[in-house]
């Protein structure tokens, strides 16, 4: 196996919204709370979690030391530029996701 074990950092990608996405954010917060370095990227339907006030799970994740970004293309594609984003959430693109994915020691988990 050539997978990176143990992980030096996690890259979590959330493309869904709703109850199962809330559970994934709980996973993310647990990892961050345990001291793991965690990057979370919200794309596709997952951008709904990045709207201000929507996700307590995102707030908990950021409070536990996680870092989160939201996909610029999805915001443009879905006409969400006017939507207020959660504090602490940054906008970025697929280029950054690719860079993070390619970093040695990254474990990626996609929901």
């Amino acid at each position: 196996m050539t997978q990176d074990l143990p992980a030096e950092q996690y890259l979590l990608v959330e493309t869904r919204s709703g109850d199962t996405a809330d559970r994934f954010l709980a996973d993310a917060a647990a990892l961050a709370g345990a001291g793991e370095r965690v990057r979370l990227f919200l794309a596709a339907d997952g951008v709904a979690l990045g709207i201000r006030g929507v996700s307590a799970g995102l707030t908990r994740f950021l409070g536990a030391g996680g870092q989160a970004w939201i996909d610029e293309f999805t915001l443009a594609h879905r006409a969400l530029h006017a939507a207020p984003l959660a504090p602490g959430l940054r906008t970025t693109g697929m280029g950054d996701l690719a860079d993070w994915l390619l970093e040695p020691g990254t474990r990626v988990v996609w929901h």
């Binding site: 493309t15 869904r16 794309a43 596709a44 293309f73 693109g93 697929m94 996701l97 994915l101």
Partner: peptide, 14 residues
């Protein structure tokens, strides 16, 4: 869903 769309975008970036 936009899963394929996201994969193609990621592939392009890689």
């Amino acid at each position: 869903t936009d899963a394929l769309t996201t994969v193609l975008r990621l592939a392009q970036a890689v």
